[in-house]
Design a binder for these strands. Structure first.
Lengths: 210, 210
DNA sequence: TAGATTGTTAATCGATTAACAATC
DNA sequence: TAGATTGTTAATCGATTAACAATC
């Protein structure tokens, strides 16, 4: 289960790293180089490449341009995609700011909120009332969205989006959204990560004292 | 390796979920309830609780107040902690906005940037020149920081913070920062998550067509 | 008692790593 | 050739799950 998702994550890492190496003017790389820059083991790099039918030459390593091409082929050309966000509170706004800057991966083309006071179609990222979500996403063929609403309504919004035909959701709330057949969910829980960091650091400090 | 970190992550999840259940007025829970709300299996909940010496009663489940107390004991009281952020560009600003809102976990008390034009000690979150990082963090006993600088300088900033005695780093760049003895790193790569989501969704759509 | 749930052990599952033959 | 690196298989490692005895 974690399988596909983890490999996919590594694939994206590989592509990013490879593009960076190419930009540095490097022409060929060894599994070791890629391992170092991506924080993985060389065994894993070779294993993944092998499973993706990416060929290297013994002794010669991998041609960087070939890698770039292969990954583009496998992952699809990297063209900007459109997403919408539900929830135009402070967090929603912060995400919009974060995302729409120096980012060629995706663009948040609209926000939706239940509060009519917040709607404003004159902004760079227009804000519509939630009741317009279905028609907007259908019209613009958008099926991936971000949830940045208060926890209490996260599941409700999730269901709404599911019914509206969304296929992918990026969840910024602390609530666990149960994955239903036909929809993929990713959760980014920044608070949890920070808490986790604090906890791990405190653990280390304790064990050092002991 | 992933071990400790994964368990820690689940522990934080447990605490969050348990507090929510308590706030709903629930008095006792079964491993099943916790599994559902946290997206884990009941086996795992029982196993984790067991390894944390958290006792339930057969048939009676777990007393919620007891759970709250135990987790507080284990994880430490949840009091706000201070962090700083390096990088006061758009992303840094977005993170500051995100973090300092409705969040009792941590507070970003200062930002640092190399650009003197950006320094401004009059803001809610004051911005200082990077040269003041060492003295500020020492004076305020801060050893956890966020990196939100351009990729090219991420490793440089990382080294700087390491030398300044930082113990934990939350990395918002796409660069892999190699963990050194004595410092813990968490990376939050929002772009990668979104890319990943797009990729997984497209995979599913393809397999459906086939 | 009958039914339900914990606590724990054993089985499974899968991911990662080690190792090395093939070979450039 | 000698040395180095891939590609792949086998071994390891650990995490998750299943199952069930204990027991409330």
């Amino acid at each position: 289960m974690a399988n596909k998702s983890e490999l996919a994550k590594r694939m994206l890492k590989y592509r990013n790293v490879i593009i960076k190496l190419k930009n540095l003017g490097i022409v060929k790389v060894f599994s070791d180089n890629i391992a170092d820059t991506s924080g993985l083991s060389s065994s894993q790099v070779r294993k993944d490449f092998s499973s993706l039918s990416i060929k290297g030459s013994k002794k010669g390593g991998y041609q960087i341009q070939y890698l770039v091409d292969r990954f583009e082929e496998i992952l699809g050309a990297k063209n900007e995609q459109k997403v919408i966000i539900v929830g135009y509170g402070n967090i929603g706004k912060a995400i919009i700011n974060y995302q729409n800057l120096n980012n060629d991966i995706c663009k948040i083309v609209a926000a939706f909120d239940i509060d009519k006071e917040k709607t404003n179609s004159g902004l760079d990222t227009p804000v519509y009332h939630i009741s317009e979500l279905d028609s907007f996403s259908k019209k613009n063929k958008i099926n991936i969205g971000i949830i940045a609403v208060p926890e209490e309504v996260a599941n409700e919004v999730y269901e709404h989006m599911y019914n509206a035909g969304f296929k992918g959701i990026l969840n910024f709330t602390r609530i666990h959204l149960k994955e239903i057949e036909g929809i993929t969910i990713k959760t980014i829980n920044i608070d949890l990560q920070i808490e986790n960091l604090f906890y791990l650091v405190s653990l280390k400090e304790q064990s050092k004292d002991a």
